[in-house]
């Protein structure tokens, strides 16, 4: 077997695994969110399907599969169909460059736990993330619904302005590590310490901008149930609706995974050199903790208004991120 075929097979298996893991993570994240919400709000949450409601996501999936697919009369059929796919795919592929553990020995081969290690990993993440906004804008436009349109407008304005802060906030770790590869950033953190200690401002800006990027409360303007019913996906039903849902939750997972990698040392933890498989556990724990934080925030805080959100993005987050970059760069040059 030539090495090339081996690499191809390895990549295919890893990609399939990643899709499976993400789809499962999405399903159980919805359950987790409902369970956590129930816990916070003194309710029981889903508990009918399976023990502790564990089969609820499967039941929801089956229900959504068999729902009628409605297409509004005035909708642009092609774009209406394309929009959920455009939201889903970038969310999925963004995880390709995130290492979820150190290299392990398996079947006599050294296998990297992560699909790929691009040397421009961070750039890849930013570019893929910015594609996702198309799905939302197109959904808002093609639905021929005024609420959807408003949602799409809000989404495009919001995501574009927060992407700048997001992009600037990751420059800190890149400067410190001297590489754009995510594997490289983790290795650099292994030598020093978690970057959240060196880059608290960067981490904060990244998390807030990330919240806005995935449209989570208190920045869930494009959906804003109380104002726009459901915003850009008001007209969607059945599987198309669940694709949007999936896109949103997988993006949540992705943002938390990237935050873990950049600021929380990724898969690093005690004994990870001796037992590489432990890396996956550490990575999962850290990512889950961030996801919990996101859900907690949603359950506690009121929503910002659209103009206040834009002001916050441009007048607070952006200068903060810029200042962080300047300070980091100066300090790195001066202190070597």
């Amino acid at each position: 077997m030539s090495p090339v075929i081996g690499i191809v097979i390895e990549a295919i298996i890893k990609s399939a695994l990643m899709v499976f893991v993400l789809a499962t993570a999405f399903a159980y994240l919805t359950l987790a969110e409902r369970k956590i919400a129930a816990f916070v709000q003194v309710r029981k949450g889903p508990n009918r399907v399976g023990p502790w409601g564990l089969m609820q996501p499967a039941a929801d999936g089956i229900k959504l599969l068999f729902k009628e697919e409605m297409v509004p009369a005035g909708a642009d059929k092609v774009l209406f169909f394309l929009a959920p796919i455009l939201t889903m795919i970038p969310a999925m592929v963004i995880m390709a460059v995130v290492p979820i553990g150190p290299d392990v020995e398996l079947f006599g081969r050294s296998i990297r736990l992560g699909i790929s290690d691009l040397n421009v990993g961070m750039l890849y993440i930013l570019s893929v993330a910015s594609v996702a906004v198309y799905g939302i804008v197109l959904a808002g436009w093609s639905s021929a619904n005024k609420y959807s349109l408003l949602g799409g407008l809000r989404a495009s304005a919001q995501m574009i302005s927060y992407e700048i802060a997001l992009g600037l906030s990751i420059i800190g770790p890149i400067i410190l590590a001297g590489t754009m590869s995510l594997q490289g950033i983790i290795t650099a953190q292994q030598q020093s310490t978690w970057y959240v200690l060196w880059q608290p401002v960067g981490a904060l800006v990244f998390f807030l901008a990330g919240l806005a990027e995935v449209n989570r409360a208190p920045f869930d303007m494009p959906e804003a149930e109380q104002e726009l019913t459901a915003g850009y996906f008001t007209e969607y039903s059945g599987m198309k609706f669940s694709l949007f849902f999936m896109g949103e939750y997988i993006k949540m997972v992705a943002v938390c995974a990237i935050a873990t990698t950049l600021f929380l040392g990724g898969y690093l933890g005690p004994y990870v050199e001796q037992l590489p498989w432990l890396g996956i556990l550490y990575f999962t724990i850290k990512t889950t903790a961030l996801l919990f934080l996101m859900i907690w925030i949603r359950l506690t805080l009121p929503r910002l208004r659209y103009d206040q959100l834009m002001a916050f993005g441009w007048k607070v987050l952006l200068p903060l991120a810029l200042a962080n970059v300047v300070v980091t760069a100066t300090a790195t040059v001066l202190l070597g």
């Binding site: 919400a37 709000q41 003194v42 208190p218 804003a224 109380q226 359950l299 506690t300 929503r303």
Partner: peptide, 16 residues
């Protein structure tokens, strides 16, 4: 009215 601003948990507390 808190729910209208998306402070969703308060709704449930008040109904309790």
């Amino acid at each position: 009215s808190a729910m209208d601003l998306n402070a969703s948990s308060i709704l449930i507390y008040c109904f309790r």
